Computed example of a mutant assay.
Amino acid sequence: MKYMLIMRATDEAFKTMADVDFTEMIETVGRFNDELIRAGVLVAAEGLDDAAEGVVVDHGSEVPVVTDGPYGETKELFGGFYILNVASKEEAVEWAKRAPLTGPGFKTEIRRVTTIDEMPQDNEWIKKERAWREATGQL
């Protein structure tokens, strides 16, 4: 089963990271990533650029509204993610507990990644997606 570990932090928590030596942070995260690789569970991992560089497309009105970052009432920002292929949610939780960026304001949300096999296989769009995934080596 695949699980996504969504790395979240408050604005204040991100500010505390500004004081951490970047090389030290890379070493810490790198060691954790290496553990995931050696355990054979890492599928993908990416960090995200500063929220101030992002945009939000709000679909709450008939014409979508695009707003530049930073965002006005942010309580938590999505800073990066891991996708792990593990045997259970409990195993995903155990990996999340070991994540290297911790402290007040840091959280990891864990969500199972659904598969195309869970979708209605007789749907024309699912058939097209399955064909694309097979052609690109994803299935």
Rank of each mutant, 00 (worst) to 15 (best):
K2L: 04
Y3L: 04
M4T: 08
L5I: 12
I6L: 13
T10P: 05
T10A: 01
A13Q: 07
K15Q: 03
K15E: 09
T16N: 02
V20P: 01
D21S: 09
F22N: 06
F22V: 13
F22W: 08
T23D: 14
E24Q: 13
E24I: 02
G30H: 06
F32D: 01
D34C: 03
D34H: 15
L36D: 03
R38M: 05
A39T: 05
A39N: 10
G40E: 06
L42A: 09
V43E: 00
L48W: 05
D49V: 03
D49H: 11
A52G: 15
E53T: 14
V55I: 13
V55D: 04
V55N: 06
V55S: 09
V55A: 13
V56T: 12
V57F: 10
D58Q: 04
H59G: 07
H59R: 07
H59Y: 15
E62V: 05
V63P: 06
V63R: 13
P64R: 07
V65L: 11
V65N: 07
V66T: 14
E73A: 11
E73N: 14
T74G: 11
K75S: 14
K75R: 14
F78V: 10
F78Y: 14
G79K: 00
G80M: 02
Y82H: 11
I83L: 10
N85W: 06
V86K: 05
V86P: 05
V86T: 08
E90T: 09
A92D: 02
V93K: 03
V93Q: 10
E94A: 15
W95I: 01
A96T: 02
K97F: 01
K97G: 10
K97Q: 12
R98Q: 09
L101R: 11
G103P: 03
F106H: 12
F106V: 05
K107D: 12
K107T: 13
T108R: 09
T108I: 15
E109I: 00
R111S: 00
R112H: 05
R112W: 06
V113R: 02
T114I: 07
T114K: 08
T114Q: 10
T115M: 08
I116D: 12
E118M: 10
M119H: 04
M119L: 15
P120Q: 03
D122C: 01
N123M: 03
N123E: 14
N123K: 06
W125V: 11
I126T: 13
K128M: 14
E129Q: 13
W132V: 10
W132S: 14
R133G: 07
A135I: 03
G137C: 01
G137R: 03
Q138D: 01
Q138A: 08
Q138G: 04
